[in-house]
């Protein structure tokens, strides 16, 4: 399996590389751009990025595995990040998470629906605590969410 970004992404990658005085510094933006296009960072893309930046592939894996927003497995078409830190917990985040999982039909340990529509990840504070409990759908903020609105959100996601 080999990897190659689209021409448009390659152009953005080259611009990112040019923004830093050392090529290796562009690793985070390069991985972000790859993930933005592919939905995750496949192993072949790790090797591609290493080659592009003149790094050992281990250096790429090391970074990829450190940051929680990078995905080393394919994700659903929509990614939902739901906050479970303190302000959201005080406002009922655990119930919202349970409702979302139930509505999505996620079994124990699963984070992506069987049809590949939605990935649900519980995360730490989203910096939106005055809208607790809150979540982000593909990076767009939502909140406060209730058990009922969680069900409506899932219906909306299924329709995408």
């Amino acid at each position: 399996m080999s990897y190659a970004p689209s021409a448009a992404v390659l152009e953005r990658i080259d611009r990112a590389v040019a923004a830093y005085p050392e090529r290796s510094a562009a690793l985070l933006p390069v991985l972000r751009l790859i993930q933005e296009e592919s939905g995750w960072v496949p192993p072949a893309a790790e090797v591609w990025a290493a080659d592009k930046l003149g790094l050992n592939p281990v250096r790429v894996r090391e970074v990829l595995s450190f940051y929680t927003m990078f995905r080393r497995r394919p994700a659903g078409r929509t990614v939902v990040q739901v906050c479970r830190n303190l302000s959201c917990t005080l406002a009922g985040a655990e119930e919202v998470i349970a409702a979302l999982r139930r509505e999505l039909g996620l079994g124990d340990g699963a984070d992506t629906t069987a049809d590949g529509a939605v990935t649900l990840v519980a995360v730490e504070c989203l910096g939106n605590c005055d809208h607790a409990p809150c979540l982000q759908i593909d990076g767009v903020d939502r909140g406060p969410v209730t058990r009922d609105s969680a069900a409506a959100i899932v219906r909306e996601l299924r329709g995408r």
């Binding site: 050392e22 562009a26 985070l28 972000r32 250096r59 970074v63 929680t68 927003m69």
Partner: peptide, 23 residues
């Protein structure tokens, strides 16, 4: 420069490491 989900990167020297393309 965007982070990618790591609280510790708010610590100033971790932030520098992250800008340099490391953990």
């Amino acid at each position: 420069h965007f982070g990618a989900g790591a609280y510790i990167c708010g610590e100033e020297t971790a932030l520098l490491e992250s800008v340099e393309g490391r953990r």
